[in-house]
Design a protein around this nucleic acid. Structure first.
Length: 642
RNA sequence: UGCCCGAUGGUGUAACGGUAGCACAGCAGACUCUGAAUCUGUUUGUCAUGGUUCAAAUCCAUGUCGGGCAGCCA
């Protein structure tokens, strides 16, 4: 769980066209219970676009007291892997934890609908129709939950668990004369379909089709030599109704079913039936599947399945500025080591976002804020950044840390003296309490907080100028000490020793307040300063343009989005931190005052296992912070104007 | 090219025949021991043209623009 400090109140449930439909169905009592599903293909890591879908599907289940199944849409063994299955489970659990985890549909490990059959029928996890529901008690919902809770080892649903059923449905379609085995090559199939021409194999007998399909299943034919096609209408204006393929031959090991199958159902055939088998009521997907909906309906209707059938609804996928969402391109970044992995904090993956320090609450608030429509828009990444700052502002512990130090000597402060000053942990949350920070004669301040030649409106430290050291004294810069090259070595300052909190001149107004760290007490930390991964707002668009414009050839045929990577997306510094940061905890969030929000990276070694006993070589920082996001910086904007 | 879908300030969304609202961003100011947060104010919008109607962002028609699909991927 991501529970740093405060539990922010959940945002108000949003309203959108899909929720309107669900609400109407609930009012009509059309279904015994609302049942959605989140069906990723395990061929990559989940990204923030999936987070939108997760929040929609689980949000609906949560708001209407329903269930949302997590289902691996794993019908293509060539592209899928257990690594992705595992990451998907982790990411979904993280995102819904403490929110919709009670609405998560899982199943007993190893069970399939067939495996739990009690009367010869598949045992649906929730009623798939009103007719079947009548045999269930009104508390069917609780039964489902009881069943889930009673089983210690639960797992997500897998489309591949239904391969037996789906196969039987295909046979049923053949027997009805609604499907046939086709021997056309891929190229021929393509050509026939484009030209609305019937396959010469379209009118094979049922017996012949049954025989051929059985032999396909038995592995008698090589990949690509035969397919099973639904017999619909090759002249249909919608391409997907022109006798679509529903099974293809793939002699491949499947990550979940192993070597059991050498034929695999296509998405269109597997998906609607998986929805049906799980008793899904609202099958929500993105816009590109809209043209597939007639096929979705056709399959279920032509199998004469009991009604009401699941229904498909489509919404616009998320696009974000300065971000790419294509799994293929993200994988390219990983494979070519342009980032450190799928969970690199610069990646738009859920795992990357999490590692960066963003909380699940913030991500959910973002998903709620952007809404659900059928319009293909481009959301400003600033909306995400706002959600992150809003969340972190409320929960982050304030700390003093100097990223790029300059030494300051307080010449009128006694050598060897140390004071412990009170500092507030979180001004947004009084219950977070206070801590002590040490003050002494030699300090570090931020390089940015001193200017020998200050620009207009600069109210930090300058020669002869005064500034407040947060929680400590007002100091005045008397002297700038430089080396032969003109590099600043240290600033010599005097403090107004009465200006500390409670002191005689504590109320004196100085325009600037800056952060600092006592040099003798400072703790070093590696700080990874992340920035956006791309330099342009629409990397996909630019890449596409350079690709099409580009017989110039320099950027290559795919449009080289990699040339748009921000070379400054990661900068690593060694920061001087106040000593309390020694005890930083991975589950907490920190604000280094006046700078940014940070979270401990998983590479850190913290607590009692800190490697303080290191003997050889330079000290390797064991404290590693990731910059989640900077504070808003009005001064940067002001300085730019000048 | 065929089929499908969409269009409300800079961006994302709401208004479901009856006052065009919210959020982000921007701008200006107040406050501030974080140039943060908070608070106040504020610029900017119904794709176009017709039609229906007492009344249209909303219904209809046409056009324009944008997106999707045309894998034995999902």
């Amino acid at each position: 769980m991501s529970n740093p400090n405060t539990d922010n109140p959940p945002p108000a449930a949003p309203s959108d066209f899909i929720r309107d439909i669900v609400e109407k169905h609930v009012a009509e009592k059309k279904y015994p219970q609302i049942h959605t599903r989140f069906p990723p293909e395990p061929n990559g890591y989940l990204h923030i676009g999936h987070a939108k879908s997760i929040c929609l599907n689980f949000g609906i289940a949560h708001e209407f007291d329903g269930i949302c199944n997590l289902r691996m849409d794993d019908t293509n063994p060539a592209k899928e892997d257990v690594e992705y299955v595992d990451s998907i489970i982790e990411d979904v659990n993280w995102l819904i934890a403490g929110w919709a985890d009670k609405n998560l549909g899982l199943k007993p490990k190893g069970k399939t609908p067939e495996a739990v059959t009690s009367n010869g029928k598949p045992d649906f996890y929730l009623p798939a129709s009103v007719g079947q529901a009548s045999s269930l008690s009104p508390s069917s919902k609780e039964k489902v939950r009881d069943r889930l809770e009673a089983c210690p080892t639960l797992e997500p649903f897998y489309a591949s668990d239904y391969f037996d059923q789906i196969y039987e449905y295909a046979v049923a379609l053949i027997k009805k004369g609604n499907a046939y085995v086709c021997d056309l090559t891929p190229d021929q199939t393509d050509e026939y379909r484009r030209n609305a021409k019937e396959s010469p194999f379209r009118n094979r007998t049922v017996a012949e089709n049954l025989d051929l399909f059985t032999r396909m299943k038995n592995g008698e034919f090589p990949d690509g030599t035969r397919t099973l096609r639904a017999k619909i209408d090759v002249t249909a204006p919608n391409i997907w109704m022109r006798d679509p393929l529903i099974y293809r031959i793939r002699h491949a090991e499947h990550h979940h079913t192993g070597g059991k199958w050498c034929i695999y159902p296509m998405y269109d055939f597997a998906h609607c039936l998986s929805d049906y088998l799980e008793g899904i009521t609202h099958s929500i997907c993105t816009l590109e599947f809209e043209v597939h909906r007639p096929l979705y309906d056709w399959i279920l209707e032509n199998l004469d399945l009991p009604r009401p059938l699941p229904h498909q609804y489509e919404f616009a996928r998320l696009s974000l500025t300065y971000t790419i969402m294509s799994k293929r391109k993200l994988m390219q970044l990983v494979n070519e080591k342009l980032v450190t992995g799928w969970d690199d904090p610069r990646m738009p993956t859920i795992s990357g976002i999490r590692r960066r320090g963003v909380t699940a609450e913030a991500l959910r608030a973002f998903a709620y804020n952007i809404g659900i429509t059928k319009y293909n828009g481009l959301t400003d990444v600033a909306v995400l950044e706002f959600a992150i700052r809003e969340d972190l502002n409320k929960r982050a512990l304030r700390r003093l840390a100097v990223l790029r130090p300059i030494k300051v000597v307080i010449t009128n402060y006694p050598e060897g003296k140390t004071e412990e000053l009170d500092a507030v942990n979180n001004p947004e949350d009084e219950s977070a309490g206070k801590r002590k920070i040490p003050f002494s004669r030699e300090l570090y301040i931020e390089q940015d907080d001193f200017k020998e030649v200050p620009p207009p409106k600069y109210f930090r430290l300058k020669p002869g100028g005064e500034v407040r050291l947060k929680y400590a004294y007002i100091i005045k810069c008397d002297e700038v000490v430089k080396d032969a090259t003109g590099k600043i070595l240290e600033l010599r300052c005097t403090a107004d020793l009465d200006s500390k909190s409670g002191g005689a001149t504590a109320a004196r107004k100085v325009k600037g307040t800056i952060h600092w760290v006592s040099a003798a007490h400072a703790v070093d930390a590696e700080v990874r300063l992340y920035d956006r991964l791309f330099t342009v707002p629409e990397p996909d668009k630019v890449a596409a343009e350079s690709a099409s414009a580009g017989s110039s050839g320099a950027t290559g045929p795919s449009g080289d989005f990699k040339s748009l990577l921000n070379p400054h997306s990661l900068e690593v510094v060694t920061a001087k931190c106040e000593p309390s940061l020694k005890d930083a905890k991975p589950e907490l969030r920190y604000q280094f005052e006046r700078l940014a929000y940070f979270a401990l990276d998983k590479d850190s070694v913290v607590g009692s296992s800190r490697r303080d006993d290191r003997t050889a070589g330079p000290a390797v920082p064991t404290l590693i912070f990731n910059r989640t996001i900077t504070l808003k910086d009005a001064w940067a904007k002001e300085a730019q104007k000048g």
